[in-house]
């Protein structure tokens, strides 16, 4: 946490690296998947990051914004992002096609404390676009399955059409080494066979939790936290083993521009991953 400079450009942390869009396709009406690779192949291979970290993406003429990395470092040299069309930069990104160039710098942020999670049970709770950062840690756990105990995934979306990585998550349901529960707030298709209700209605399916050896990871829209945290506390999971990753405005990613300041810390270097204890301790986190 708050540690060393591991970003790709060591002499000038503000200078992006050119990256090429390898693949892109829509995930939902307003969310798109982007797979990118740094143009400099040596840099692409040496781009080291951990799940939960983010990168700054820039589009010439439109600006720069932070995005969490959705891919896992266990599958190196390609980076994946899932991006919702929401502002100037994302509108510009949406217009880009395969083989177009973007600028990337990073990786930034603390990421998840993967090493202290080794040997522990993992519960991943994601809502809506919260799947973007948590997909990284989920795939990491699955790629290093022996390093972790139980892995459970609770994923909620508003409607079936708004569930990002829908096919991918349905495929995961086939795996025997993962408990995968999916839900939608409302089914407007009449074809949804999984749970209907908000993500907290999935909690009864989690049986025999051993709280002291469990890490819970949460990401979703602001309204979701309050209810999910209540459920996790009911399960007696220690407050410093409940992890969440937060969104803030960021202009630099390296703790200088000030926009992501919370209390006396910066989300970009001290976060974006915080524990529930941090939230109680530091006011105005969520």
């Amino acid at each position: 946490m708050n540690g060393e400079n591991k970003c790709i450009n060591q002499t000038n942390p503000y200078l992006p690296e050119a990256a090429r869009i390898v693949r892109t396709y829509p995930l939902t009406e307003d969310v798109k998947y982007f797979q990118v690779r740094l143009v400099d192949m040596e840099k692409a291979i040496s781009f080291k990051y951990s799940p939960g970290q983010f990168a700054m993406i820039s589009v010439l003429g439109a600006g720069e914004a932070p995005f969490s990395i959705s891919s896992t470092p266990s599958r190196p040299s390609l980076l994946e992002f899932c991006i919702r069309k929401a502002g100037t930069v994302t509108n510009a990104i949406f217009k880009l096609k395969e083989n177009d160039h973007i600028g990337i710098r990073g990786p930034y942020g603390n990421g998840f404390p993967i090493e202290s999670m080794h040997g522990k049970d993992i519960i991943i709770v994601m809502g809506g676009l919260g799947a973007a950062p948590l997909r990284s840690v989920l795939l990491y756990c699955l790629d290093n399955r022996d390093l972790f105990g139980r892995v459970a995934l609770l994923h909620g979306a508003k409607r079936p059409a708004e569930m990002i990585f829908r096919e991918e998550f349905f495929a995961l349901k086939e795996r025997k080494d993962l408990e995968c529960y999916l839900t939608v707030d409302a089914d407007d298709t009449g074809k949804w066979k999984e749970n209907i209700g908000v993500v907290t209605t999935l909690f009864p399916q989690l049986k025999d939790i051993n709280p002291s050896k469990t890490f819970a990871i949460v990401c979703g829209p602001p309204v979701m936290y309050k209810f999910v945290l209540k459920e996790l506390i009911k399960l007696n999971i220690p407050k410093n083993q409940i992890l969440m990753t937060l969104e803030r405005r960021m202009k630099c990613g390296v703790g200088k521009c000030g926009h992501c300041a919370i209390d006396y810390i910066y989300t970009c270097i001290d976060g974006p991953v915080f524990t529930y204890w941090d939230v109680i301790h530091m006011k105005e986190l969520i």
């Binding site: 010439l60 003429g61 439109a62 600006g63 720069e64 202009k251 630099c252 200088k256 521009c257 000030g258």
Partner: peptide, 10 residues
């Protein structure tokens, strides 16, 4: 005070 904004000026 050190806060700054970043501008992309085409």
């Amino acid at each position: 005070c050190n806060c700054y904004n970043v501008l992309d000026k085409p």
